[in-house]
Simulated scan of single mutants.
Amino acid sequence: MDEVKKSQASWQVPMSELYQVLQPEFERLIFQNAQLDLLWTGGRWCEGPAWLPAGKYALWSDIPNNRTLRWDETDGSVSEFENPARNQNGHTVDRFGRLISCEHQGRCVSRIEFDGSRTILADSYEGKRLNSPNDVVVKSDNSIWFTDPTYGIDSDYEGDAANSEIGSSNVYKIAANGKLTCEISDLKQPNGLAFSIGEHELYVADTGKTHDPNCDANIYGYQIDQKQAVIPSSKRLLTRCDNGLYDGFRIDTSGNIWTSAGDGVHCVSAAGKLLGKIFVPETVANLCFIGSKKNRLFICATTSVYAIYVNASGAH
């Protein structure tokens, strides 16, 4: 496809303006000479990044513009991967290398097969249409877990305005055999999600403050039982956001959580302690680890995409 606007620049700012070190552990996770690189700008709401190592490229969504974009690591070029893109939001790659997508307009979770065809994996629960799947993660048993808030049906800006048929915003699991189950139903607007190291706990961000000012901007943890289902009574507060909302996030190989926030990227330990921050000029919505060593953060921030090297590697 035709190449779209490309930007390559670094934010040459002092370390004191790029990072906030809150715990000594964070100093070992960053590089004093690393810079925040602006890879591209020109979006309306950049979201849902995923790294496809075989092709050495990253994908992300520009939801209001209804397109999915592709950044090529080999030459820094940016092109349209899909347009129109059914207002896709979150993406991930399964253990076979296939792209999994959350579609606002399609109100489904879909997969691109090896031959390029599209398969709808889930679009309804108990006979009612899903709201607008938002973010997605694949577990080691090949089950697919996704959040289903209402952002894609709240207006025509990021999808098609409609009433919720289900009447709630939940977290679902698509088992390897295709069975769909509701795993979490006690959050206002479940959003980003990821499994802990060892997959004994599922972390989920609640961005319900966008709809209810009394909703706390938290990430919660839920234990997973031996049948690979959520234990509802195990819900615990993991961390509370002190600037904006925690939205999409990823886990590194040490179990730390690298999460989006209103002032940039926050790094939180597995125990829930805020270790430090990487400041970004725009509100961050999501991020992922990219590169052959998975040691570079690919950051989707409102209208732009940024990247920075860290002394950590993304977990699978």
Rank of each mutant, 00 (worst) to 15 (best):
M1D: 15
E3H: 12
V4E: 06
V4S: 06
Q8T: 10
A9R: 08
A9F: 10
A9S: 14
L22W: 14
P24K: 09
E25N: 08
E25R: 10
F26G: 01
I30N: 08
Q32R: 15
N33H: 13
L38G: 00
W40K: 04
A50Q: 01
P53M: 08
G55K: 12
L59M: 07
S61A: 11
T68L: 14
R70P: 00
G76A: 03
A85N: 12
G90C: 08
E113N: 14
R118E: 15
T119Y: 05
I120P: 13
D123R: 03
G127I: 03
P133Q: 09
N134L: 02
V137T: 14
V137E: 13
F146N: 03
I153P: 02
E158C: 03
S169M: 13
N170P: 01
V171G: 00
I174H: 02
C182M: 12
C182A: 09
I184L: 05
I184Y: 04
D186L: 00
P190D: 03
G192I: 02
L193N: 04
L193R: 02
S196K: 07
I197F: 02
T207E: 07
C215Y: 04
N218T: 10
A229H: 13
R240S: 15
L245A: 11
L245K: 10
D247S: 01
F249P: 03
F249L: 01
R250M: 10
I251G: 07
I251K: 04
N256E: 03
W258P: 07
W258I: 05
S260R: 05
G262Y: 06
H266A: 09
L275G: 05
G276A: 03
I278V: 15
V284P: 12
G291P: 02
S292T: 15
S292E: 15
N295L: 09
S304Q: 03
I308H: 05
S313E: 14
A315M: 07
H316L: 15
